[in-house]
Amino acid sequence: MMMSETKTNATSRPGLRGWLKGEAAQTNVMLAVSCVLVLIAMTALRPSMFLSSYNFESMAFFMPELGILSIAMMIAMLTGGIDLSIVGVANLAGITAGTLFGAMAGDGGSGALGLGPVTLGVSAALIVGLLAGLLNGFLISVLKITPILATLGTGQVFIGMCLVLTGGPAIVGFPPGWNAIGNGKLVGIPVPLVIFVLVCIALSLLLARTSFGLRLKLIGTNPKAAVYAGVKRGQMILYSYMLTGMLAAMAGILLSARTNAAKSDYGASYLLQAVLIAVLGGTNPAGGRGNVLGVALALISLTLLSSGFQMMRVSNHLIDFVWGAFLIGVIALNSWRRRKGA
């Protein structure tokens, strides 16, 4: 798994820090440029539809859930891992809250539930995410299972638990307070977008300005040096997966609040897209590199692109093809740049 990095690390160790910063900045500039290019191209092709405020507003509502999942994926990749269970965690969080609302509402229907139960639901969903992340982190850091297989397995367990809780069909009818999280507006700005921006700011501060973030990246860059520097590897990995689980649960809250429903197989295509956005945003899946701004820019450019495709009536399957081709293209580009930089 480490084969991709050993070579470049060895040759570029002097000035590693400056080089890292340089590359991250470079990637972000490229992403910002591609955002603008996509915007111009789509506007030229479909001016009246693409530039409408309705289009941007709908993007602002559905983009945040994918964005938060991508950031969760980036956190898992920082230590050289991956979390394939994020979509399962997101759905389980939404379904747990939905089941809870169903139990609390009784015969009156969930419409009558006020702020208190909604807060309880949000906390329950976040706790589910935290526990799911704790399980992943335990399997990975204590039992030393490869992240791929551990999260592949737990992801199935989570989806299975969704099926057991719902029996198959979607849970519908969330209280109005819950829906406001996904569809409401705060001084004219969609609530999901507000939450996403807050998450972005909090996590970029956490990664760039705290010793937690620095240690997390060190584990990914050079595990041996991290141990010699006194980083408690197991503990850090445990925390990072708990954070990933919480973020996934947050995305699950947004998803079920926006659609007013929760189901075991919602957002199945988000997994690939989250990996793609994380990698496109300059995250190195082998660990050590990743920043929130890059992920956010990658998210925006890909959302613009796919919304443009949808307007041109390209079939969803071909959009899947484009996502996959993009991922491979980015891999090729990164490898070419690494070789040039080394």
Binding site: I82, I148, L318, I328, I331
Partner: peptide, 22 residues
């Protein structure tokens, strides 16, 4: 490209399925 097989095969799977269905 010396890339992690999981990520490569996630991408190629999406490409192939998308092309067949599309």
């Amino acid at each position: 490209f010396k890339m992690i097989p999981l990520i490569v095969t996630l991408g190629t799977a999406s490409v192939v399925r998308g092309l067949v269905l599309g």
